[in-house]
Design a protein around this nucleic acid. Structure first.
Lengths: 229, 229
DNA sequence: ATAAAAAGTTGATTTAAAACAATGTTATGT
DNA sequence: ACATAACATTGTTTTAAATCAACTTTTTAT
């Protein structure tokens, strides 16, 4: 973590739900400020097993949300794309993070006092519904992940993750911020197998890959592979 | 599902949080009644993909909570022991169940109008915290499950589940309501391997098994196997 | 009481993926 | 500019678990 400084909500490039709520309550010009922190690539934003001290909101930059497993092997559940709540799953009465979040590129995170969020969560119906909805969505995504990781073959899992990355970047051609190892961690696959499968897909003209540049050439076939394997 | 009839909360053998809250608000004698339904073993209490219509509370009998996967293979996340909320995870703004719950023995379930729960959830701080806490706990359990299913060997996973069953039944000797196939589904293992491993443990005098009767003879060794594999 | 279905078990083979080893390429630090 | 570390790739072998087949036992239905 690098620079940390207080920033007024009205100066923020993102307008989170909390800001929206405060705006409605206090008028357009809110005087609330929160700590904003800058993270460089590979910096840990929150660490599994540590105590929750703030609600966090990703303002800028992508991050990965993962569970730290055995033998230094992680499983990446999903990527966080701004604007997004970080650590939301632990907001619901869990004193410690049960997963970690790490920047995969330079990020900016807004730290909101937990007490303020809790107070507003209880007092504001709209915010409560909003946060709960985001939460519920995370959970159902995780259930699908469980089935995928356990019941699909690695080829289908890599295909699935390529589709996911395409959706996250809203493009069929994108620049990866993840290493091969990390792509593998998204699918619970070894790095060597990840490379092999990516090469296979390239050879089959399903994707084109050049270093970190990836382009999906045959999305419909990728989707078929995803369903069948 | 068999018999369904309205039952007054004060007549219920369990006193859920909602009853507790209503008691405090309206005095000890609440006139609220909810539909109670009886389920036989194997009856589906809620089905993945169907719409949430009520909040449900398990009053009597054990049930399994599972995700329906590919090729008719389920993964059982955990067992529900009364008193317990059913379908709580879908209460948080998910219109459809993302998992299923099925009775593993005769069960009684209380159906609470969703609107009532939502109203009380918003109006009552204590209930909100209570439900959120139960929810957060489910989620962190699921994360551990993900690591276990993906990173442990099947021997460790079976050991882990035997320990879990012992905890659920609060005894080192218990009568299984689950089939071998279902035990396997708790650990994402085939039925044949499940039987093999149970036989191995019996052979090694770690457990004694006689049909559905299971007794854990060496809990500390089981825990070691669970950690190492 | 009996037949059929479901569940449990055992043995053997196949398969999918990890693991291991070695080499090459790219990025980073000095 | 160069050395080192990190990342990527390729080839091969090993391993863990699934799958398949066949049989036995238990439970359920008639």
């Amino acid at each position: 973590m690098r620079i940390s400084k207080k920033r007024n909500c009205s100066d923020c490039i993102q307008k989170c739900d909390i800001h929206d709520v405060l705006s409605k309550v206090n008028g357009q010009d809110t005087t609330v400020s929160h700590l904003h922190a800058q993270y460089k690539k590979h910096d840990i934003i929150c660490k599994q097993g540590t105590e929750v001290t703030h609600a966090m909101f990703l303002v800028k930059g992508f991050a990965k949300m993962y569970i730290e497993g055995l033998n230094n092997k992680n499983i990446i559940l999903y990527l966080l794309k701004p604007p997004a709540y970080i650590g939301l799953l632990s907001f619901f009465e869990s004193p410690k993070y049960s997963y970690s979040v790490t920047a995969i590129e330079d990020c900016e995170v807004c730290f909101i006092e937990l007490d303020l969020v809790k107070k507003m969560y209880i007092e504001n119906h709209e915010l409560l519904l909003c946060l709960n909805k985001a939460f519920g969505k995370s959970v159902s995504t995780i259930f699908k992940k469980i089935i995928s990781l356990n019941q699909k073959q690695i080829r289908g899992r890599i295909a699935e993750n390529l589709i996911y990355l395409s959706e996250i970047y809203s493009a069929n051609k994108f620049h990866l911020k993840l290493s091969r190892k990390e792509i593998g961690e998204m699918a619970a696959i070894s790095e060597e197998n990840t490379v092999r499968l990516l090469s296979e897909f390239a050879k089959e003209k399903i994707i084109a890959i050049n270093g970190k540049e990836v382009e999906i050439l045959d999305m419909s076939l990728l989707k078929k592979i995803c369903e069948v394997c």
